[in-house]
Design a protein around this nucleic acid. Structure first.
Length: 811
DNA sequence: CAAACTTGTCATTCA
DNA sequence: AGTGAATGACAAGTT
């Protein structure tokens, strides 16, 4: 923030900044969309279970989703940096954008449009009042899924008419555009993410908060209110200063939304932030509508409503101030579910995503390739753009979080099962609105959903053999109850918790911690290690505690340099601190370390323990930091002018020793072993003052080295800890992924079991040839591997007394 | 000019 | 008891 030029008052500056930044984002997003970068809102949102989507994207997932991509895309592709916002550049971008649009409108992917539609949504609300189609779409609650819907398309097109702005983005274009492969989008986001540093995130966060301060209330988010406002405001173009501010504020909201997933700084739990985001979003939407309307006259209103949720869900949404209908999805989760679980879930998801990102990063470019979502990576990337190994991190992680991760991990779990099972009829669209409906639970297929997304108790209950549904008692649970059901239940429980809505907090937490650690780790490890390795042979970032112990050895090791010193100084203990070596090396061949940022930073002094007095007394011409010494000399005028040159390079103790006419060098005083030191003192007839000074010099000198070692040790410890955290995170992500896979496979097995069970059951006939009603009988595995058909009453009995297994009935 | 960092020093503790 | 190392705290200098 400090680097950002701010004309006028702080708030004004911020507004400018926001304005440019957000505008740039919008422009770039559009541009990216035109180019073909896919903002695949449809796929993710429509296919994903509402809760998950909600969790990942937040209450206003529809908006947020788009926002994220927009931000990333914008930053990625064109590097509009919040800090270096250039007005000319901005307008240039606009022109370019126009040109691009003109070149190929048809190429605009529908998905992309959806992203814009999200913004448009608010716009739609504003302008939609005049456009019936848009309003209808909203009312109908057409989900994002509807974007592709042929019916929806016309509505979208309808809005394309507004030629107000130079940016004439046709809705039709978006709808007609082919969806670019995910890889494209990822690539694009990846490219641009480099610019999103921690500072950027911080900036975004600040802007967001500022918006809140500016007065963006939750009420803004109320859809109806928003719409009204938008309608009212619509007549007045965003030209007025007030409007600009508002736009800025909404932009902030956008920024915030986009950045939020990445931002770990706040440390707030996502659930908490969500409301804030929502409020922010609402404001931003309002502004966005105006801005978009002015700039992009396309009319895809229909898409915005995408998140339409079932009424009951919406009702539950009230809690979430945020707003959009999308929010309602969250309610699906049982209210009783503790916040901690949500956080945990978020963490798990994030970890998985990170893992995927890491894995995909190298191998699969088409899927979330850039996702090196590792927390650390993110942090590194965000904080240390220059040194960060994987620039994409933030984008990637975010990207995954919002989309790929979901599609990859979850669809496999749910999609197949749902299809195969009775749930199959449910398509993505219905699922969105009714995912929490009872139907799902009733059927076995529901198990899948329930297992993962529904509260644990559902599954656990199933283990008890007593099924709530009379029609189709859960035979499967009965079968499995003794063997694996418990495990599954546990897993499910864990999974459910892991996937429940509130992972936002976890996400933030993870990001935050990541940012903190990874940030440092990314830089510190690299830089320190480089400097150390090259110069002082100190422990590198990767060095372990063992390295520390080695330091001492290094310090005392007799290098050629040390030997030189010894020859010069006489018989010295050979104690040469590593830092002194470092300094000397740098002096000898400064170019050697040129380009090592770390060394550059070390620039000042860094002679550490180097016996300057002796060294420089003999080689006064050495280019030591004369400036620094000069400063010191100014303060101390007790030395002879003739000695100034020497004093310039001498430490205080050196000067003191000289002033006291100590007959030997400070280096000897400090580094000689006690015995030799005492001998040295004995050889010379020294006054009390001289002896006291010598002892102080020795004490201080040793303490100085000790302090240096201590600090170095501390630093190394921190680095090692960071590395450990990184490793642990990676392991965690890997384990979580494995867990997911296991759960998935278990569910598939369940699925198969269920189908087999049903198949067998349907073919069973009693002595009279009558089928056994599934509601009254269940199949049970006996200890010897045989399968028994038992009355459910008996099964329930067994469940209560798992110890006693009855092997009766018919076989 | 202030904040952040670096470095040296002192005081203290421990081995 | 003396010595050295380790370390927290502080101050001064640098960036």
């Amino acid at each position: 923030m400090a680097t950002v030029p701010r004309p006028g008052s702080r708030s004004t500056k911020m507004l400018y900044l926001k304005k440019y930044f957000t505008e740039g984002l919008i422009q770039f997003t559009i541009l990216l969309s035109l180019i073909g970068v896919r903002v695949d809102v449809d796929t993710y949102l429509s296919n994903q279970l509402p809760p998950l989507r909600e969790i990942i994207l937040g209450p206003s997932s529809a908006y947020t989703q788009t926002q994220f991509h927009n931000l990333r895309n914008t930053l990625d592709g064109y590097g509009i940096h919040p800090k270096s916002v250039d007005l000319d550049h901005f307008f240039t971008t606009r022109r370019l954008l126009n040109q691009v649009r003109q070149l190929d409108r048809l190429s605009v992917p529908s998905t992309e449009l959806s992203a814009w539609l999200v913004h448009r949504d608010s716009e739609t609300v504003v302008s939609a009042s005049s456009q019936s189609s848009a309003s209808i779409a909203l009312d109908n609650g057409a989900g994002l899924e509807d974007v592709d819907d042929p019916d929806a398309t016309p509505a979208m097109r309808g809005g394309s008419g507004a030629p107000e702005s130079t940016y004439n983005l046709n809705t039709a274009d978006s709808s007609l555009g082919a969806v670019a492969p995910e890889g494209t989008q990822e690539q694009g986001s990846r490219d641009g993410n480099d610019d999103l540093t921690k500072e950027d995130i911080d900036l975004i966060d600040i802007l967001w908060r500022q918006d809140i301060d500016l007065g963006a209330g939750r009420e803004v988010f109320n859809y109806s209110n928003r719409q009204k406002e938008s309608e009212e405001e619509k007549p007045s173009p965003p030209e007025s200063k007030d409007t600009d501010e508002e736009q800025e504020s909404w932009r902030n909201g956008v920024n915030l939304q986009e950045a939020q997933p990445v931002d770990g700084e706040t440390g707030e739990s996502i659930p908490e932030q969500l409301p804030g985001l929502g409020s922010q979003t609402s404001l931003s939407l309002q502004e966005c509508l105006r801005l978009l309307e002015a700039t992009f006259p396309f009319g895809e209103e229909s898409e915005f409503p995408a998140p339409v949720v079932a009424p009951e869900i919406a009702a539950s949404t009230d809690e979430v101030p945020s707003t959009s209908q999308a929010v309602p999805l969250a309610p699906q989760l049982p209210p009783a579910e503790p916040q901690l679980d949500l956080e945990q879930q978020w963490q798990d998801i994030m970890a998985i995503m990170e893992l995927q990102a890491m894995e995909v990063n190298n191998t699969n470019s088409s899927s979330v390739s850039g996702t090196s979502g590792t927390p650390e990576t993110n942090a590194e990337g965000s904080f240390g753009p220059a040194t960060r190994p994987t620039p994409i991190n933030q984008d990637v992680s975010l990207h995954q979080a919002s989309l790929p991760s979901c599609s990859q991990d979850f669809p496999p779990i749910f999609g197949p099962q749902l299809d195969s099972v009775s749930v199959a009829p449910r398509t993505a669209t219905p699922r969105l609105s009714s995912s929490n409906s009872t139907n799902v639970n009733s059927t076995f297929g529901a198990t899948n959903l329930t297992g993962i997304f529904l509260p644990p108790h559902i599954n656990s209950s199933s283990s008890n053999n007593i099924t709530s549904t009379p029609i189709l008692p859960d035979p499967f649970s009965t079968l499995l109850e003794e063997s694996m059901l418990d495990e599954i239940s546990l897993l499910d429980l864990a999974m459910e918790e892991g996937f429940s809505q509130a992972q936002a907090s976890q996400l933030e937490d993870e990001l935050d911690s990541d940012s903190g650690l990874s940030l440092d780790s990314s830089h510190s490890p690299a830089s320190p290690s480089s400097s150390e390795t090259s110069c002082s042979s100190a422990a590198s970032s990767s060095s372990t505690s063992a390295t520390f112990s080695e330091e001492g050895a290094v310090g005392y090791s007799t290098d050629s340099e040390v030997a030189t010193v010894e020859t010069e100084e006489g018989a010295v203990g050979g104690y040469q601190p590593e830092y002194s070596k470092l300094c000397r090396m740098s002096y000898q061949d400064p170019s050697q370390f040129h380009g090592l940022p770390q060394l550059d930073s070390i620039g000042h002094n860094h002679t550490y323990n180097l016996p300057l007095s002796s060294e420089f007394a003999e080689h006064p011409e050495l280019p030591i930091s004369s400036v620094k010494k000069t400063v010191r000399d100014k303060s101390s005028s007790k030395f002879q002018p003739s000695q100034e040159l020497l004093d310039k390079h001498a430490s205080r103790d050196e000067r003191r020793a000289r002033s006291m006419k100590i007959p030997f060098s400070n280096e000897k005083i400090i580094n000689l072993p006690v015995e030799e030191f005492n001998e040295l003192l004995a050889k010379h007839h020294l006054s009390e003052g001289q002896l006291a000074l010598i002892r102080d010099i020795r004490r201080r000198g040793k303490n100085k080295m000790a302090a240096q070692n201590c600090r170095k040790r501390k630093l190394d410890t921190i680095i090692n800890l960071e590395q450990g955290v990184h490793d642990l995170r990676r392991d965690k992500a890997r384990l979580l992924k494995e867990k997911m896979e296991f759960i998935r496979s278990i569910r598939q097995m369940k699925q198969k079991m269920q189908s087999l069970y049903q198949e067998v059951f349907t073919q069973l006939r009693d002595e009279e040839g009558r089928p056994y009603p599934p509601s009254e009988y269940s199949l049970q595995y006996s200890a010897d591997g045989s399968v028994l058909i038992m009355p459910r009453s008996v099964t329930a009995e067994q469940s209560r007394k798992p110890e006693k297994k009855q092997k009766d009935k018919k076989k």
